[in-house]
Amino acid sequence: MDLTVGSNAFFWTAETVRDFYDALATTPVSRVVIGEWVCSKRLPFWQDEIPGAVEALLAGGKEVAVTSLALITLKRERKQTDDLVAMGLPVEVNDLSALRHIPEGTPFWVGPMVNVYNEGTVNWLARRGATRICLPPELPLPAIATLAKAGAEAGVAVEVWAHGRAPLAISGRCYHARLTDRAKDSCQFVCGDDPDGRDVDTLDGHAFLTVNGVQTLGRAVTTVARQINALREAGVAALRLSPHVGDFVAVAEAYAARLAAPDGSGPDLVAELRRLMPGAEFCDGFVRGDVGSSFSGAAA
């Protein structure tokens, strides 16, 4: 089992993007997905960083894929999908329609925003050319085990959402714009003010969700720190880490150290994460088949 860093969900400046991927190139992760999967309006602000980042990551020995958008509606967004294919890297499909732009027989990856819930779907995607599938975050361990097995039989590596706020929903409506009384078309890129997303709390003050433009994420940071051995036994090929602000390189290194010490002899990963992400709440309910926001670890 190894590590994949998924595409960044948030709107970061070009400079932040450059520094992030430069630093990531030397971390012990096996592969990286890069690109914009939340909002096509953001891409012109940082797309010029992509070629350099890809080069740095490849030079660092990483496999690299480029992601499609998670919700493709506009004509120019469909055209952008063709541009992705032309880059010559594997495309990570996060909206099924991207498949129409990938020639039959060209291998591709499937991201966590595609509904892969059962063996029939794994097998259909494998026949179409999928070589790697990151399962939707809400799947519990028994389903993960069944799909990892089906994937192995069909030649597909199966990943799980292992670290980071889980993507829970995508909409035609931009909530960042709505919060500032704007419409999506006149958003003034307000999501850039919140490089880790904008907090949504309940009226009685409990942390609940995070909005990120058209996307809604959980507030708690998902971590499968307590389920790593079970996921390995289930045949999961890789753990997916999702970028956040802060010392993400150290987060990736902490997971790598945990994978390297399957007997748990290394430092406690949850304690490490608490240290690296001060103030964060964690959750692992989905993988345990429980309420998604719940956590098996002790409270901080």
Binding site: M113, N115, E138, A166, L209, V291, G292, S293
Partner: peptide, 9 residues
Amino acid sequence: GRCALSSYA
């Protein structure tokens, strides 16, 4: 079909 808000809560 692409919403896990309910299962999160």
